[in-house]
Design a protein around this nucleic acid. Structure first.
Lengths: 137, 137
DNA sequence: CTGTATCCTTAGGGATACTG
DNA sequence: CAGTATCCCTAAGGATACAG
């Protein structure tokens, strides 16, 4: 963890909280991981309506933490492309367990039923499927 | 989710964030789940130094969300005993995946090495062991 | 389109005194 | 011991205008 972000303690739960324990960061990771979003404008268009200054701050922070990497689009030189690093992709099991928990406990949750059923039946194979395309990029 | 806490969206990731996506709630759950803490004073004594008003607020909120339940100690009538409900205990897989992620990515993390190694080897059996005593209480 | 900058409001939360 | 009640301050964040 960079010096800019001192940790209260190095308990693993607290470390995670200091990395992505706010109301916005995990939504950006969700968009990168499950919704194939990759540009500033993509994130802006999500239903939760993040504002530009907050989004820029969280992307910068995620980059500093080594969870997200930033590149310039080859097609359009003024367009940035964000993607998950390995550290970011390693968050997948957490995201899946969160999805499972919400699917079980939120009667209104909009989790894709097919994903929840597959998670219930066999989490490892779901992970394999989701990560299948990651190594290529 | 109680009406007092309207959700931005019912995406499962967002539902979880609205339930425990702040800087304190997950630490209380950690203390209940792994550190056998159960009283107001127990939580107060944790290393992250939560203040009394915030702690009271989060406990009340967790109770309203059905993640924590509150009872009065039989020994001491003016002492409250907090414990995880089934909904709260269902957070265990998330907590373990968070622990594993931090163990891998925070060089300074103080996760119990024994736990991390057991997690790496066989997560299901770790869950069985941790939850062994839960049904009794 | 990708951000930056600014203004302004509110929520989060530390400190602490106090009560049953 | 288990909270409640204040005071006060700072950080978070919404809205929006603007710049490369």
């Amino acid at each position: 963890m960079p010096e800019e972000f001192p940790c209260r303690t190095h308990c693993p739960i607290n470390f995670a909280l200091e990395s992505f324990g706010d109301k916005w960061t995990l939504l950006i990771i969700r968009d990168l991981m499950f919704k194939a979003k990759q540009s500033f404008g993509d994130f802006l268009s999500s239903d939760e309506k993040i504002s530009t200054n907050i989004l820029a701050d969280r992307l910068r922070r995620l980059e500093q933490l080594g969870i997200v990497s930033k590149a310039t689009s080859e097609k359009n030189r003024s367009k940035s492309i964000y993607s998950l690093t390995q550290k970011g992709r390693d968050l997948l099991p957490i995201m899946l367990e969160i999805t499972r928990w919400s699917g079980k406990h939120d009667p209104q949750t909009h989790a894709p039923d097919a994903l929840l059923q597959r998670l219930e039946a066999d989490t490892p194979s779901v992970i394999t499927q989701i990560t299948a395309g990651w190594d290529a990029s």
